[in-house]
Amino acid sequence: MITLLDRRVVLHPEHNKTNIDIPFLIPEAYHALFIRTAYSPKIVADEEFARKQIEAGVARYIPESAREKFGQWRDYLPVVNFITLSVDCEEEYIGCAHRHSPVMDHIISAEYSSAGFIRHAVTPGTWKCVLNCHAVVDETVTYSLQVFGADKNEELHDHVQAF
């Protein structure tokens, strides 16, 4: 496999509710793309900080009359950082992996794509990974993104089984 992208992105609360575009060039056609993502921390460990965040949310979203039943801050633990990945080929949207696991592997190819992505040939051109920062609550969240190109069927099948 050929490494097409290997990026570490450090996220802060100012990235909360933003999309971060990470374009990369695919110089030649590949049989499949493998994408490996990981971010940390997932769970906000500081419970006192989490409590304040939740209580602010309760005050904003839940009417006073419903707070006794629905506004208990512990019911909303844990507070998490939440970043999803979406992918585009040129101007075409390939999909998004909207799931909570902080560690995920994805495959995109003409014959098979993993959950959230349509099947799509890995054609030369400008592709784009987009980090969808739904929640960056902690002061620092580190996101790593690796994209590999593969051109052998055996590799694809190996990874399909592994994923």
Binding site: K17, Q53, G57, R60, V80, F82, H134, A135
Partner: peptide, 11 residues
């Protein structure tokens, strides 16, 4: 629905 940080973007 409650929004962030409990349910991100839900409100």
């Amino acid at each position: 629905e409650v929004g962030s940080p409990m349910c991100t973007g839900c409100y």
